[in-house]
C-alpha cells in the first residue's frame, strides 16, 4: 500500500467555525473546513447515537434529519449544512417521553442489535411527518436505503405502522413500562 511517492495527508485543512442547531441546541464548533458531518456529530457534538457503518452511504446507519429531510451524514460535508437544524436519534423524543416511533420499535421487535436503529428511526419519523397513513409499500420505499441484518425488516415495518396508528390517534399508546414502578411491597388480593 506504500507507493514510491509519498503524498502526505498532513497538515489537515484549516479549521472554521461550524454553526448548527442540533437537537434544539445551538452549536458553535471549530472544525476542519473539509469535515464530514458524521465526524462532527460524533466527535465534536457528541451525538454518538449517529452510527458509522460503512462510510459510503450504503447502510443508512448515519442518517440524520437536516431541516426535516433525512440525509446520510457520512456523505454530507459539515459546512454544506451550516446553520441548519439537525435532528439525531437523541432528539426524537418528545421532551422526556419516548416518541411513539421509538416506543414501537422497542415493543414490536424493530430493534435487535440496535446498531441500524437510529438510522431507521430517523427515516421513519421523517416519513410519518409527511405521511400520516403510509402503505406498507410506502414504508418499504422510505427505508430502502437502510440495511438491517438482524430483523429481516418485517418487524421494522410493523413497528412503523404501529407508530403511525398511534400518531393518528387510532390506538392508545401501550401503557409504557409502568411496571418499572413496581413496588416490591404490593398488597394482597383483598
Amino acid at each position: 500500500m506504500v507507493g514510491e511517492e509519498h503524498v502526505s495527508m498532513l497538515p489537515q485543512a484549516p479549521t472554521k467555525i461550524w454553526k448548527a442547531e442540533v437537537n434544539g441546541r445551538q452549536n458553535e464548533i471549530l472544525a476542519p473546513s473539509n469535515a464530514i458531518l458524521l465526524d462532527v456529530l460524533r466527535d465534536k457534538v457528541g451525538t454518538l447515537g449517529v452510527k458509522r457503518g460503512c462510510d459510503m452511504g450504503t447502510c443508512g446507519c448515519c442518517t440524520v434529519m437536516i431541516d426535516g429531510v433525512p440525509r446520510l451524514s457520512c456523505l454530507t460535508m459539515a459546512f454544506e449544512v451550516q446553520d441548519s437544524k439537525i435532528t439525531t436519534v437523541e432528539g426524537l423524543s418528545e421532551g422526556a417521553h419516548l416518541a411513539p416511533i421509538q416506543q414501537c420499535f422497542a415493543e414490536h421487535g424493530g430493534s435487535q442489535c440496535g446498531f441500524c436503529t437510529p438510522g431507521f428511526l430517523i427515516v421513519s419519523q421523517a416519513l410519518l411527518n409527511e405521511n400520516k397513513s403510509p402503505t406498507d409499500q410506502e414504508v418499504s420505499c422510505a427505508i430502502e436505503g437502510n440495511l438491517c441484518r438482524c430483523t429481516g425488516y418485517q418487524q421494522i415495518i410493523e413497528s412503523i405502522q404501529a407508530a403511525a396508528a398511534i400518531n393518528r390517534g387510532d390506538v392508545e399508546p401501550a401503557k409504557p413500562a409502568s411496571e418499572a414502578h413496581s413496588n416490591p411491597h404490593p398488597s394482597g388480593p383483598n
Binding site: 454518538l48 447515537g49 449517529v50 439525531t88 421509538q102 416506543q103 420499535f105 440496535g114
Partner: peptide, 9 residues
C-alpha cells in the same frame, strides 16, 4: 435493553 437502543444510548 430496547430503550437504550431506540434512544441512541
Amino acid at each position: 435493553d430496547a430503550n437504550a437502543k431506540v434512544t441512541g444510548q
